[in-house]
Design a protein around this nucleic acid. Sequence first.
DNA 1: GCCGAATATTTGTTGACACAATTAATGTTT
DNA 2: AAACATTAATTGTGTCAACAAATATTCGGC
Lengths: 166, 166
Amino acid sequence: MATLQRDLNKKSGFDSPEQQAYLNLAYTHAKLSAAFARLFKDHGLSEAAYNILRVLRGVRKHPENGRDALPCGEIGGRLIARVPDVTRLIDRLVKAGLVDRIRGEADRRVVLARITTKGLALLRKLDEPVLELHAQTLGHLTRSELKQFNALMEKARQIQASTRSP
Amino acid sequence: MATLQRDLNKKSGFDSPEQQAYLNLAYTHAKLSAAFARLFKDHGLSEAAYNILRVLRGVRKHPENGRDALPCGEIGGRLIARVPDVTRLIDRLVKAGLVDRIRGEADRRVVLARITTKGLALLRKLDEPVLELHAQTLGHLTRSELKQFNALMEKARQIQASTRSP
DNA sequence: GCCGAATATTTGTTGACACAATTAATGTTT
DNA sequence: AAACATTAATTGTGTCAACAAATATTCGGC
């Protein structure tokens, strides 16, 4: 019996091999992401907030179109998981002093979010623990296995392009 | 440049190969789970609610310890992703007529949740679309790739056993 | 049998999620 | 220039998530 099935105390098997793969993916993701969520939470951040700060740090260090900040609407597109309520998330980061809001000058509709020095400091503090956690969680995979892993993840996403069309 | 990096409009590379793997996992999971979330939502269910109903159906069909229902506290342990507020989720399912609550007789602290015939009917209705979506999303992987996929998922979870100790 | 500890679930509460509606600003057409 | 369409962000609102406290019941030691 596969580990997943035993872990879930599941009597019958899986309905299809694809379902088994999906559940394996979901289970693995749940376990790994829980570890990261705990780490971020210890520093007062949700995973989404952490990822947004990461994105904003990238732009602060490597300005785009002469800007070291990002429009709110563009932030969502830089994230792996969909964040539906960017405005309020930025609200919270602004309140925590980690992000500044800047009204655009060329287009007054646009609001730019820029990471503060406080936000940069928090990220710096988290850089090492995050790397360590990555090594802890997946460091036992060989380089060849990681390569395989990435290739399978990319392939698993491919048919999704057509599923995406509503 | 890897697809993931390009999709995220990410300028710099990844900090470590393990991080790249984790982000690939998270991105793939986000895409696939979004498709399933949409399907369940079309039938008035969240993914957690669907999974709970699946678990309860299993026990209804194959009773355990002479019981065709599960204690609330045990339901959480049968799920892939942690569900923190089982009580209220069961509340909602009871309200929707999909689950019944039964007070335990041997131990009055225990509350058993049992799927109703309405709940069974809803699941039956979803069985085929779910299988189809599985085939749609991962059906392009060969049998050998799925086998590899599962093996890597299991291996990725292994070191987690030690990470889990608080 | 009594009392304190442990257990199972529920309730209280705050914060986050997620979709729709609203507001302000810009772009396009007449 | 005015009217209409589109865009970007925000607000409104109900639902869900997540932790701590409360409540009821059972267990274990004396």
